[in-house]
Write a protein that binds this DNA or RNA. Structure first.
Length: 639
RNA sequence: UGGGGAUUGGUGUAACGGUAGCACCGCUGACUCUGGAUCAGCUAGUCUAGGUUCGAAUCCUAGAUCCCCAGCCA
């Protein structure tokens, strides 16, 4: 069995580094276990046999002699990972890192009817993207990537052992009959097969394995307690007949273990110390304990005796899952959105899947930061989706280069802009543009770049009003506004089409405000005040780009709460596609990186954060809006 | 009605018998070449009822509300 489970060296007194935050309840449990020496310490052999040296800097010598902390993330490959899984990944991987332990990615692939290689691949990609490193060399003796199906042989041997011990039996009730005889909280279940002779169960179980019986015709059940108030203990099914090929074991098996039978054994085999799962599995814990105890019954510490050595018994800890508002997380609902075509696929940017969030432009840092932020408890809670949005805003504000883009263009002509006397065409001015004001002081040579300006520009339609309300600090007839990093302009007129629609705004600029600075008076103060600053692009230089404006997929906090059907709460405006005009700088700067499955991210000033979509091609940029900037004007104008 | 859990401002989370704190949201104001960011301030909480104690969010008793469990899913 791979990782040693009976190490007896004393616990290290070393405590993990402070993070400034109080320990959450699982960390407290881990530290108490470490102090008590409950799981022993990492030994040279346990390290050598279970992990190769992919990240030598992450230090085996450091782990050596430390109390053993070994966690895992155990997804079933029957769908894509979502933010809820991210919390579990961050928790499990975070514990392993914090306590110099190990982290396994293990696929719980016990049901060939629902599982596919596509899901395996996507899950590996998403876990890596989140930054939860595991050793990718496959297999029990190679590293941190495991498959439950690798243990089918082990599990089968344990099952035979339980039959021999009189603790399991082959039951020939159909699924319907089992259901009908399940009983009630007060009335026990029944099975006419539970006292069948051991030899007969052994023979039938072998026939099940060899595929001589039809799917559903019989099961292997644990003999526990048909009257237990905990239904999980009413002789649960351990194996069912499923004569289907498996993505990993092909057609080696005709029977497959049930989750409840398999899961605890997987953790035991891998030497997992803390089996962390969500609240709904608390009711199953007595069953997992029973299975391990049943196997250990008659076994000895030193391996002497008929049944061999005792197996490892992990400690299960349950926590409350992450539940964001305005979205759905269950695989059933997600699958329905994908298959019905309501969204474009598992990586649709409106989906809470990790691949959807990645395509939307979310950074893995921001998702990790949210998970750290919401904490770990046993109380069920709902997290406002706004917190996820805040997390990515915070990260991107600090890191994303700025650019200008006009989503709904309105033409502006600067009447007093000079022509070049030689060509007779309008002068082109190249102005300084700050790449990211948050990092200006330590930006070095990349802190500024040039942006072209000329006589004809485009501004945002929303930034002009012919008849503005109070506190509208933008462009309107007779009023001044600053063009970001360029000039102060004043509106001197508008041009309308035959329908009365404004098609052009006429302005004059003040040459003394080049760069956007207001000249200083004799007192050293700016000679006048300009309230508003708006973004713009030069008509001659701007490049067209497709911009996909995403919004929340659902309008209701809890989709389906009102009518019972979550589809009733779909947001009809969850996507809007516009033809925008963007800063020519983006033609060079904006790339999609297929190797990372991520596009470059930018802040389009005053609009929000945007990333390059994988649909972009060399001659056409496509951007996804990750999230808008906070907009207090929008809030103000709604009043 | 059986079993297993949970309950602290609008939201999330600390306080582990000794001053109910932090973050987000909201609201003020300052600052600002992004109505962004930043900074300062304000609002607001221990599910209920009893009890133990000098002292209770914390311990005890009773109740309320919410979540999970009767798949050959995980």
């Amino acid at each position: 069995m791979p990782p040693s489970t009976d190490e007896t060296s004393p616990p290290s007194p070393d405590q993990p580094a402070e993070t400034g935050r109080p320990l959450h309840f699982i960390e407290q449990i881990v530290e108490a276990d470490n102090t008590a020496g409950r799981w022993g310490c990492w030994s040279p052999s346990s390290i050598a046999t279970t992990e190769s040296c992919r990240t030598p800097s992450d230090g085996e010598p450091r782990r050596l002699g430390m109390p053993r902390v070994h966690t895992r993330f155990p997804p079933e490959p029957n769908g894509y990972l979502h933010v809820g899984h991210a919390k579990s990944i961050c928790l499990n991987h975070g514990l392993a890192r914090r306590y110099d332990g190990k982290f396994n990615l293990r696929f719980d692939d016990t049901n060939p009817a629902k599982e596919e290689q596509e899901y395996v691949d996507s899950i590996i990609r998403d876990v890596r993207w989140l930054g939860a490193e595991f050793d990718p060399s496959r297999g029990m003796h190679g590293g941190g990537l495991y498959f439950a199906s690798d243990y089918f042989g082990h599990m089968h041997a344990f099952a035979v052992e339980l039959i021999r011990k009189g603790l399991a039996y082959v039951c020939q009730l159909t699924a319907e009959e089992v259901s009908a005889q399940r009983g009630t909280p007060q009335v026990p279940a029944t099975s006419p097969w539970r006292d069948r002779p051991v030899e007969e169960s052994l023979r039938l179980f072998d026939e099940m394995r060899r595929g001589v019986h039809h799917d559903g015709s019989m099961t292997l059940r644990a003999r526990i307690d048909l009257a237990s108030p905990n239904f999980n203990l009413r002789d649960p099914v351990m194996y069912r007949i499923v004569r289907q090929p498996h993505h990993n074991t092909a057609s080696a098996w005709c029977i497959y273990p049930m989750y409840d039978w398999a899961h605890g054994l997987e953790d035991s085999i891998e030497g997992i110390t803390h089996s962390i799962c969500t609240l709904e599995f608390e009711n199953h814990r007595p069953l997992y304990d029973w299975f391990i105890d049943a196997i250990n019954h008659g076994r000895s510490h030193d391996g002497s005796g008929p049944w061999g050595a005792r197996i490892h018994h992990p400690r299960q800890i349950e926590f409350a899952k992450l539940r964001p508002t305005h979205t759905v997380l269950s695989k059933r609902n997600l699958l329905k959105l994908v298959e019905s075509g309501i969204v474009g696929g598992w990586d649709d940017p409106r989906l809470p899947t990790l691949s959807g969030l990645r395509r939307r432009g979310y950074t893995s840092e921001s998702i990790r930061s949210l998970c750290e932020d919401v904490g770990v408890t046993r109380a069920e809670s709902v997290i406002d989706l706004g917190r996820l949005e805040n997390a990515v805003r915070n990260h991107l504000n600090a890191t994303a280069p700025r650019a200008m883009a006009v989503l709904r263009p309105l033409k502006v002509v600067v009447e007093n802009w000079p022509d070049d006397p030689r060509s007779g065409k309008p002068v082109v001015d190249h102005l300084d543009f700050v790449v990211n004001p948050e990092t200006l002081e330590h930006g070095g040579s990349s802190a500024r770049r040039k942006v072209p300006f000329s006589r004809v520009l485009y501004i945002e339609r929303d930034d002009f009003m012919e008849d503005p309300p109070k506190k509208f600090f933008r462009l309107s007839p007779g009023q001044e506004v600053r063009l970001r990093w360029a000039y102060v302009i004043r509106c001197v007129g508008v041009v309308k089409d035959s329908a009365g629609e404004i098609v052009e705004v006429r302005c004059v600029h003040d040459p003394a405000t080049r760069g956007g600075d207001i000249p200083l008076g004799p007192d050293g103060k700016p000679i006048r005040k300009v309230q508003g600053t708006i973004h713009w692009v030069s008509a001659q230089h701007a490049v067209p780009a497709e911009v996909r404006l995403y919004d929340r997929l659902f309008t209701a906090e809890e989709p389906g709460a009102a009518t019972g059907s979550y589809l009733d709460d779909l947001n009809p405006k969850s996507i809007e596609i516009v033809e925008a005009l963007v800063d020519p700088y983006l033609v060079q700067a904006a790339r999609f990186h297929a190797d990372r499955d991520e596009g470059d991210r930018f802040q389009f000033e005053r609009l929000g954060y945007f990333c390059v979509d994988r649909d972009s091609s060399p001659d056409r940029l496509v951007f996804n809006r990750t999230v808008t900037l906070k907009d207090t004007w929008a809030k103000e104008s709604r009043r």
